[in-house]
Design a protein around this nucleic acid. Structure first.
Length: 702
DNA sequence: GAGCACTGC
């Protein structure tokens, strides 16, 4: 095997690390940084004073790289070299090189904020800018200055943002390590296509007819387009004149494909046959397909983003960044020189594309991250001024604080509460963590563990009922429960319990069109959560009760009540004369129950007056996904809290040091004002009053 | 009456 480029730099790296607490290593694909950096520092004696931690954004990467390094060092996995990912810790007392996901290191930092067991921490693939890596970058910057022992931090990054990371760490050293990629010729379109599926199709056929052997990787945005493309491409290839060119096979590749269909792309093409792989951005970083010589890049990606001013997610098709475009092109140059067909003009790449993809931290709800940072109780840290490489907006941080306050994780002064501390221990979104704690108080912990695990694993249930008569025939085969009218959370509980009655048979999942993968995942989550709540409750909690008991509505009442508390920041009230809802929060939104919901209307066709929702998603319209019916008496205490909420106090008075303009703005837009669904501001007091009146009016009508 | 990219504790 050829010597990895990074080994030629061994002395230089060791020297730089010896002299500097932080070093940025810019290493292209194939430089060997992931496997070699840890070994170099191990050889130089850094494992004598502690272990070397190497973080990865993905689980598979942590496992495969650890395996490789153990092999190279001739040791058994789990001894000298080990890894830790969720549900699996393969390390021992002997472990001195530990690969772990960035999320795992964050968890470790919760119980040991100084991370004293490590002499070196390497944040690998930092250019991917995962939410967890970004938080770690901030924590590392702080740790460097605080830890008395000799901590070394290495950050690996791609070419473009190396300088920026260096600047973040007060101009630390940057080392460049070349990679082993072959040149990729980039071919641009003269204009942007009006129909990019057709354009991809045409380009793919051109490559097939004109270019020498080599597989083709096509980047598209989602499952629908991929399926369309696969179908059309197969059809067109069949119609080509026989013998005019080589054979071809076409594979789809995306995340929701079952694993056995995903791995098909790893077997090489049969002789005299070209493979076409039509993929989402899963093929950009997560899965590496060998044999690719041609890449067709649509220039688009589907991206989920959170809008803190509405509390809503949307899934948008957006233009990729230059970093992303180059990453895609690089996929053609792994085994020999390649070609990349960019279905956009050069000027679009140069002038319209962003330098780098907007980091996740600026596209997500930050409630979980803010709670995590608060629970580290770093007394010297003000959350609104936490030193991020790319700070999230103030609006987004304030949104997180409001959410945390409404579910009792922080008090009115922004201090973390006992409840908040317990929530941070749980590897769940804050709302679900809060639900578990409340469920324990109310005596329905076991059920809540099931529901939160199912939501955490994002188990998708196919439609179980339909008013459409044509589909009625199909329905008779359906054995899946329907949530007894209370909504999707209850259905998830019932589905899991049915699986339990089937002794967790994977075939039961397939028979019911449930993904085995996600069901198994939810079982693992449930087990992990049970262990953690047992630890918090000192082993006295009932985490298994009633799984196979027949449930009555009364049983669900406690659970729904716990959910109402947990989703105190995600409540909605139905509007008087129809089945639309408006959210009850800092800013009200007009929303509808997602059509996939099993929530039932009463005999008058009216949906429940109050619901909680798991998420707001703006697709063709704003929808609440996963809803559960709750009762007004449970909602009222939360509305009172909303009324008391004061963002200036929640943010710990840090507004005082902001510039004057912001302070003035704050005073004018008092957070005590809420905008109701019609867009008119009104005090929350009057909102609650109005809600009560509407409720009474409805009651009288019945 | 809609349709979900990708990760992770």
């Amino acid at each position: 095997m050829a010597v990895l480029p990074i080994l030629q730099f061994e002395d230089k790296i060791a020297e730089t690390v010896a002299e500097n607490p932080v070093v940025v290593i810019i290493g292209e694909t194939g430089s060997g940084k992931s496997t070699q950096l840890s070994q170099i520092l191990h050889r130089r004696g850094y494992t004598r004073s502690g272990a070397i931690a190497v973080t990865q954004p993905r689980r598979v990467a942590a496992v495969t790289v650890a395996r490789r390094v153990a092999f190279e060092l001739g040791s058994r996995l789990g001894e000298e070299v080990g890894y830790a990912i969720r549900f699996e810790d393969r390390t021992s007392d002997k472990t001195c090189i530990k690969y772990l996901t960035d999320g795992c290191l964050l968890r470790e930092s919760l119980s040991n904020p100084e991370l004293n067991q490590y002499s070196v921490i390497i944040l690998d693939e930092a250019h991917e800018r995962s939410l967890n890596t970004d938080i770690l970058l901030g924590l590392m910057k702080r740790l460097i200055n605080r830890r008395s022992s000799n901590l070394k931090v290495l950050i690996t990054s791609a070419t473009l943002d190396g300088v920026k990371v260096s600047r973040f760490f007060s101009g630390c050293s940057v080392l460049n390590v070349p990679g082993t990629l072959f040149p990729v010729e980039k071919l641009y379109s003269t204009e942007r296509p009006t129909n990019y599926v057709e354009c991809c199709l045409k380009t793919a056929l051109d490559v097939h007819v004109r270019e020498p052997p080599g597989d083709v990787l096509i980047f598209m945005t989602g499952q629908d387009d991929i399926d369309k493309m696969v179908f059309k491409l197969e059809e067109r290839i069949q119609n080509l004149e026989e013998g005019s060119c080589m054979d071809a096979i076409v594979f789809p590749l995306h995340g929701s494909l079952p694993p056995e269909l995903q791995i098909r792309v790893f077997s090489p093409a049969p002789p005299n046959c070209r493979r076409f792989i039509v993929a989402t951005n899963i093929a950009e970083t997560s899965l590496t397909v060998d044999g690719i010589v041609y890449v067709i890049d649509s220039g688009f990606v589907k991206q989920r983003q959170y809008n803190p001013s509405t509390g809503m997610y949307s899934l948008d098709i957006v233009q990729i960044s230059r970093v992303q475009a180059d990453q895609r092109a690089g996929r053609a140059g792994r085994t020999c020189p390649g070609k990349c067909y960019r279905l956009y003009p050069r000027t679009v790449y140069d002038e319209e594309f962003l330098d780098a993809t907007i980091p996740e931290i600026q596209r997500s709800s930050l409630a979980g991250s803010v709670l995590y940072l608060k629970s580290l109780s770093l007394s010297d840290i003000d959350i609104l001024k936490f030193d991020f490489l790319d700070p999230p907006s103030r609006e987004s941080l304030e949104d997180a604080l409001r959410q945390l306050y409404l579910i009792d994780a922080i008090d009115e002064n922004g201090q973390i509460t006992e409840i908040g501390k317990a929530m941070a221990e749980l590897p769940l979104e804050p709302s679900l963590a809060r639900t578990l704690i409340e469920a324990n108080e109310l005596g329905c912990l076991s059920q809540a563990l099931t529901v939160t695990s199912m939501l955490s694993a994002e188990v998708a249930i196919r439609p179980t009922h339909s008013k459409n008569k044509e589909k009625k025939r199909k329905q008779s085969f359906s054995k899946l429960p329907d949530g007894s009218g209370w909504g999707d959370h209850i259905q998830l509980l019932q589905v899991y319990e049915s699986w339990d009655r089937a002794d967790y048979d994977p075939n039961w999942c397939t028979d019911n069109e449930l993904q085995v993968r996600s069901m198994t995942f939810s079982k693992d989550v449930r087990k992990q959560l049970s262990q953690i709540v047992q630890k918090i409750g000192k082993g006295s909690l009932d985490v298994e009760s009633g799984m196979r008991q027949k449930k009555s509505d009364k049983d669900y009442k406690k659970l729904r009540r716990a959910l109402c508390r947990g989703y105190g920041n995600q409540l909605a009230e139905r509007m008087l004369h129809h089945n639309g809802y408006h959210t009850l929060g800092y800013r009200s939104q007009l929303v509808q129950v997602h059509p996939s919901s099993v929530l039932e209307a009463d005999e008058d066709g009216q949906l429940p007056d109050y619901v909680v929702y798991h998420e707001l998603i703006n697709t063709s319209r704003p929808f609440m996904r996963n809803v559960c019916a709750v009762e007004i008496s449970w909602v009222q205490p939360i509305l009172k809290k909303l009324e008391k909420m004061n963002i200036d106090k929640l943010s710990g008075g840090s507004g005082a040091s902001e510039n004057t303009e912001t302070i003035e703005n704050k005073t004018i837009n008092s957070p005590m004002q809420a905008v109701d669904a019609s867009g008119t501001p009104g005090s929350l007091d009057s909102k609650i009053q109005a809600a009560r009146e509407r409720y009474l009016a409805r009651k009288a009508k019945r």
